[in-house]
Write a protein that binds this DNA or RNA. Structure first.
Lengths: 193, 193
DNA sequence: CTTTGAAACTAACAAGTGTTAGTCAATTAA
DNA sequence: TTAATTGACTAACACTTGTTAGTTTCAAAG
């Protein structure tokens, strides 16, 4: 895996936007090319296949999540602080890559077999790490003793689909988003629990 | 819109499963036909187009959500009870239509224009109704005064992606799912809030 | 200048797409 | 028994798909 050229990054950026709108399968190489004002064949001077474009869109972002949660998990901090930082990680990466987040959720199954395996490995690792954090929180009596898988997926469902509505509705600042989202996810929305 | 035939329901059922696996655009009419052990052309004895199949998959389920939240909202019950019932509504409909739920999230933009408009109307109505419920909860001091759009989408993100993991992980009963999910969403996961 | 390299282009391909037309066998209604 | 309907079939259509081959343009390096 060599360094990515500027043009490759442009392709990945344009493709991510289109993938988000219509999904990987509904976007043609001619669509991507037209958005760059070139012809489809010209794309192949920079990439080797359509699946390669998808990998360009996904794999860096997936690696950022892997690296992010690894760092957080290794830190010597309380479980609740780890969770707060994980929420912030998702917010930061979503703001930086809103379009690619859609493909991360919906298009990853169209990766070529080798890339697909690397992707699912990272995804499994991420979920497993988060589950370990949740479990230790339950053992420390810091987290309510609910089903731990349920907690993991309840958190991830919201965090992974942040891209769907950040920026669309009442444009709250990144800071208020983080504070309110952390409160909603960790402390709940109903009073006097 | 006439009554749906048995064969139409079979097509919708098979298509929903395939749409979930690969997405609408990546599923061909020949794929759907092969899953039913007939030829693609034979499908057109029962449906008029591929987009029609998608409408068959989506529109009934969308109507169920609309009807469900309308009934709940009209009931003379506390806000927290409304929220509990909305959570149950999502659980019930997800268990009954796990595959179609995926298309409801990811494939609706491929509907033909008229169906698309009806769909987005219902979706907007659903979100607006939920937001009104949340807002009245905040005004009654029952719900924490967080950003109301954030609360709506935090809840819906989890509820709409239930299909992704129900049945996959530690097979908890429908009852425990409902109880724990309600607790996690409404009361939060961290103690002593 | 000349050469080289990158990056665009045109043209074309084989395969797959949704869909239509026309046919035929079997079940149902008269 | 006959007529009509249903629902499968084969064959084909016009179009789009990802991709390759070969060519041209043009700026940078020698």
């Amino acid at each position: 895996m060599t360094e990515r050229s500027d043009r490759q990054n442009e392709i990945a950026s344009v493709a991510a936007r289109l993938f988000r709108q219509k999904g990987y399968a509904a976007v043609s190489m001619r669509d991507i090319a037209a958005s760059m004002h070139i012809k489809a064949a010209s794309l192949y001077n920079h990439i080797t296949s359509k699946q390669d474009v998808l990998a360009l869109v996904l794999m860096d972002l997936a690696a950022s999540f892997t690296q992010g949660i690894t760092t957080i998990d290794a830190a010597d901090i309380a479980v609740s602080e780890k969770l707060s930082r994980i929420i912030k990680l998702h917010i930061d990466l979503t703001i930086q890559n809103p379009h690619a987040m859609a493909s991360l959720n919906n298009d990853w199954m169209h990766l070529a077999p080798e890339a697909l395996e690397r992707f699912t490995e990272q995804r499994d690792f991420y979920e497993e790490t988060l589950r370990r954090i949740i479990r230790s929180g339950i053992e420390e009596r810091i987290i309510h003793p609910l089903n731990e898988d349920l907690i993991v997926f309840s958190l991830l469902s919201t965090l992974r689909t942040l891209y769907l509505w950040y920026g669309r509705k009442s444009n709250l600042s990144e800071q208020k988003l983080r504070v309110d989202l952390t409160a909603a996810l960790l402390n709940g929305i109903v009073k006097n629990s």
